[in-house]
């Protein structure tokens, strides 16, 4: 049972951030490849504040403000740059932010990470933490579904389908992009707030490219822009990833073989959705 509680936490913990990124990347067709950059800033903001003040509310607030600030920069870039340039610069920003986190050792302890992250007393057991995270994830899915059908959802879709036409009918790209990036900032802060308490250690190794690749894979496999599709992909791919640990693989081959099998499956998943990777401009 505790393992399934753990899987429940892992799945629920992916949902708010990944569905929010899906609004930007999947629905808005904005090549934001720097979600891990936001994750780093938000996580370090939370943990450093928490360790120095002991206030969970203040830590969440600082994490959120940090995430909103960097998201505002990303949103501004998304308006100023062409999609391919945005993809490159957001990737570069992820690396830059990671480098700052690793090299600003007086603040972040660099490559050592920050162990001993405290937990709210309410979350003393993993079960409570996981169930709370699951409830938050369900509420986030409902919020995403609402957003999908809202005026905002229609406007971001319109911008993705035909930007010039959308602007001509009064849709503000900067406003819509800001909202989309701010939603991601909020989702990511919630995720960081829970995951740091769950892991009890903040380590830069957890923000490397494999985490971002998992984002993109789930969004592509689940159908970019689809709330329920991406949710299902998160559930299935997480179960698949963890399920590979149960394959009867000889001890000496455990790591590499799991990685190869998972890589092949991800490739197939992305191949299925290859047509939806790049935005299709609607002709009028």
């Amino acid at each position: 049972m505790p393992f399934f509680i753990h899987i429940l936490f892992v799945i629920s913990n992916w949902i708010p951030s990944m569905l929010s990124h899906n609004v930007i990347f999947g629905k808005g067709k904005i090549f934001h490849f720097g979600p891990m950059g936001v994750a780093i800033i938000s996580s370090y903001g939370i943990v450093i504040t928490l360790k120095s003040t002991g206030s969970f509310a203040l830590a969440f607030l600082v994490g959120l403000v940090c995430a909103l600030l960097i998201s505002a920069v990303f949103a501004w870039l998304s308006v100023k740059l062409e999609p391919d340039a945005l993809g490159v610069i957001t990737l570069a920003m992820h690396i830059a932010i990671l480098n700052i986190a690793i090299n600003w050792t007086s603040l972040t302890r660099g490559a050592l990470g920050i162990p001993g992250v405290p937990r709210l007393s309410f979350f003393s057991s993993n079960t409570t933490l996981s169930i709370t995270m699951a409830v938050v994830a369900v509420l986030w899915i409902i919020f995403m579904l609402y957003l999908d059908r809202s005026s905002f959802g229609r406007q971001i879709s319109a911008l993705a389908e035909h930007e010039w036409y959308a602007k001509s009918i009064g849709i503000s790209k900067i406003k819509i992009n800001l909202i989309a990036f701010f939603i991601y900032a909020l989702g990511m802060t919630i995720v960081a707030f829970f995951s740091m308490q769950y892991l009890t250690i903040l380590h830069p190794n957890d923000f490397m490219f494999p985490a971002f690749i998992f984002y993109i894979t789930c969004e592509l496999a689940g159908k970019p822009g689809s709330v329920l599709g991406v949710t299902l992909a998160i559930v299935l791919l997480t179960i698949l990833k963890e399920g590979l640990r149960f394959m009867p693989i000889p001890t000496g081959l455990t790591g590499p073989l799991e990685l190869i099998i998972f890589g092949v499956i991800l490739f197939v998943a992305v191949w299925w959705r290859r047509d939806s990777v790049f935005p299709n401009t609607r002709s009028v």
Binding site: F3, G113, H203, E242, R245, T254, G255
Partner: peptide, 24 residues
């Protein structure tokens, strides 16, 4: 018997590995 789990030098994977080893 020895049951090996790959944690890829990351905390997240190490927690998954420990949970699986202990509880499953």
């Amino acid at each position: 018997s020895i049951i090996a789990e790959d944690a890829r030098c990351t905390g997240g994977d190490a927690v998954s590995a420990a949970q699986k080893l202990i509880n499953i």
